[in-house]
């Protein structure tokens, strides 16, 4: 049996609140379908589900998004309030771009030089007139967020300035550092691919 949560006509955070309520009430592990008619709310709900490790798929037809959630056997313990996933429009110092870090080094060639350049970059970004909306880290770049590293402190500083830090979950798993992350939201390929293909300006240093 499928439970339908119809959020058409609703703006954030209402779809998030409705989704969270449906998940909490779903003691029998039914499949839940959330119907949303705007891309931003769909993205925010996706982010919320990803952070809570709930498997889902998205089907889009003529601007109507159907998010199908199969939470059977998965414990739902939200770490943050659903409303916190409601992305607000970026303003002030936030620019309309995101930064993708694909390695713990900046550039290729000499490893020691690459490391020091990356540290310099992370400590320079906060001084830019326009901050990135988000920094997405994958492959060895996720190690930059490890506890006790100076790069993690730089990322914390950026995070405190409103820059979202996203870490590739597969990569965090590969390097075995899940329990050792200082900053950042662990996400998946679907989210990363969506962000990279969303039309936003992507900067790869």
């Amino acid at each position: 049996m499928t439970k339908i949560v119809d959020c058409r006509g609703q703006l954030c955070p209402q779809p998030l609140i409705s989704t969270k309520r449906a998940l909490k009430e779903n003691v029998n592990g039914e499949v839940i379908q959330v119907i949303i008619d705007n891309a931003t709310s769909c993205q925010n709900v996706s982010h919320f589900l990803t952070d809570n490790a709930l498997p889902f798929s998205i089907d889009e037809q003529s601007g109507i998004f159907t998010i199908t959630i199969n939470s059977l056997g998965i414990e739902f313990n939200p770490k943050k309030e659903a409303e916190e996933y409601c992305e607000v429009s970026f303003s002030g110092k936030s620019g309309s771009y995101l930064v993708v870090l694909t390695s713990n080094l900046m550039g290729s060639g000499n490893e020691d030089l690459g490391k020091i350049l990356m540290k310099g970059l992370l400590n320079t970004l906060p001084n830019l007139e326009k901050l990135p909306q988000e920094i997405i880290c994958y492959n060895s770049a996720v190690t930059l967020a490890r506890k006790g590293t100076d790069t993690a402190q730089s990322l914390v500083k950026l995070n405190n300035l409103g820059v979202k830090i996203t870490l590739c979950g597969t990569c965090v798993d590969f390097f075995g550092i899940k329990e050792d992350i200082e900053v950042g939201t662990i996400s998946n390929m679907l989210y990363i691919a969506e962000r990279l293909s969303s039309g936003i300006h992507v900067v790869k240093p």
Partner: peptide
């Protein structure tokens, strides 16, 4: 030079001093 920065960084790390690489 950047070589001296890298050499200095290694020393600072070995001394356990908090630092930041900045432009």
């Amino acid at each position: 030079s950047i070589h001296k920065v890298m050499q200095a960084e290694r020393i600072i790390v070995s001394l356990g001093i908090v630092y930041q690489i900045v432009p």
